[in-house]
Nucleic acid binder design. Sequence first.
DNA 1: ACGGGAAAGTGAACGGCGTTCATTTTCCGG
DNA 2: CCGGAAAATGAACGCCGTTCACTTTCCCGT
Lengths: 199, 199
Amino acid sequence: MSKLHLPHIQIASAAFHIYAAEGPKGMTMRKIAAAVGVRASALYRHFRNKDAILDAVADAADVALAQKLQAPAKQNPKKRRMKPLIGRALDFAVEQPKLFRLATSHRPRWSDAATGAKNILTSEVRQAMEKGELAQGDAKGHARSLWAQICGLVSIRERGDLPDNRGELRGAWFQTAQAVVAGLAPPLRAATSRSAAAA
Amino acid sequence: MSKLHLPHIQIASAAFHIYAAEGPKGMTMRKIAAAVGVRASALYRHFRNKDAILDAVADAADVALAQKLQAPAKQNPKKRRMKPLIGRALDFAVEQPKLFRLATSHRPRWSDAATGAKNILTSEVRQAMEKGELAQGDAKGHARSLWAQICGLVSIRERGDLPDNRGELRGAWFQTAQAVVAGLAPPLRAATSRSAAAA
DNA sequence: ACGGGAAAGTGAACGGCGTTCATTTTCCGG
DNA sequence: CCGGAAAATGAACGCCGTTCACTTTCCCGT
């Protein structure tokens, strides 16, 4: 396991904040270096290149998103989980649009870290299945569908094709969210023919 | 109406091809200029700056996507439209990933051009509603939900979280697509007849 | 047919970018 | 306290988008 150098963390953290505030074009080697009180060339002692730093930032963004997704501990175990979960994801996307985009689309693959958004989401879905809120089935597949819908909603929102008014916006979100959950909801009849293979 | 200068078109088209092949970082003022046989500084006689060229490329990508989305003319009017439509969208995303990303996420707003993907999609949805394939309701809202799901699917596919195997991939796509259409489907209609056993 | 003015193209230059490299500074264990 | 390793430096390279004064090209009104 790598030694997790301190300067490594300082650099990644500085880059993270710059990225969150100014986006990809604002995150510059020289600016990152300045933020940690050093010259740009010094960064190369700790990261192979800029992309490596961006990877670290993306990991951090993924973790930040995962933390936001995680249900609050005090949550009433009888309450439904899915709509609040979607709400939290959308909140994160609105509060930190650049980090959300990075977390959901930068890396070639989802982080498999236990603390990553993917695993948090899957675990939430699994709990919802156990309580009958979602149809029994492949938890990974359900998580995928749910996540696809969330990403899509955010993508559309960013294109400005959702109402600007806060209340209507929320309504449109949940109208769509409802469509998703309905698609995954316990069958009025048998829904999926394939669920055996993947688990 | 602007005069639709010829050089304008040449430049945009060169930029389009470069972007499709090499992505955002490959699309350089100097390269575009070389492709039309001119120096970089000459481009500024026709476009205010690089972003303006990128806007033109994004418009072109939107139109290309719309053409792909449009149902083939010979289509049997009795056949279902939604799943083939989703299939075409996904095909485009696989064949031209960079153009798809640009068309779906570059601009601040959807193009309202009649030939844009947004309008084609809405019109397809409207026809599906008329035939009872989708529940009656707000066509725009349905189109939004559908498009959200498609964008999300593509986004997830690009992260590598879908099977690599071609058949399974298709299966996973349509499993998810089914969840969407189910969410939008008329309340009591016979559950979308064919379950999507690809493989 | 031609002169002149507008449009288009040029080449050099600017500052900023990521990255490299030889050199210098800083740090710390024996 | 010293010597070598680690870290930081500053200058440089090539590419980027963009600007500007200048030249070339084109075409329209006389």
